[in-house]
Amino acid sequence: MSSTLIALAAVCAANPFRVGACAPESAVARRQAVVVATAFTLFAVALSALLSDPILDLLNVSGSSSRIAAGVAVLIVGIRDLFAQPPSPEPALAGLLAGIVPMAFPSLFTPALAILAVSAGAERGAVTAIGIIGAAILSVGLIVVANVRGTHWRAAAVGSAGVVFGTLLALNGVTAV
């Protein structure tokens, strides 16, 4: 599982245009919400990566098979993003907590990102996984702050990339030892 594939899959799993679609309208609130959402997601990803070995041991899943799981999860998210409308900013928690709901959860920290973090943590080590996925999340955050609005076709384009990279990731797991 190469670093590039992990990073690309992570960006697709946390589709920036879907996240942007549920961000607050005002620039200040948006920036604050992105900081909160990114911090929350980084924490959750770090926790997933750090706990990857015990999680996989608990589930009796090998690192190679976890790649398939991550690939399938990214693929499913990609298919959803390809066809579903981006989410709405409402309902949202008040103030800074809007960065938690709906931005971080459920838009940024998707199940696909969680499974990807666990798989990458087991396969590449927690520090490397956190570094790669963390960089991807920061990139997503910057795109959201830049307020490239979440038009459906942009989210769908990332979704189609998710289908490709999810498939590649799953195949990577299938052909692993």
Partner: peptide, 15 residues
């Protein structure tokens, strides 16, 4: 839903 689908694809390994 996602975990259910992933669980169908990847089962626990009896190792």
């Amino acid at each position: 839903l996602m975990l259910a689908v992933v669980g169908l694809v990847v089962h626990p390994e009896n190792c």
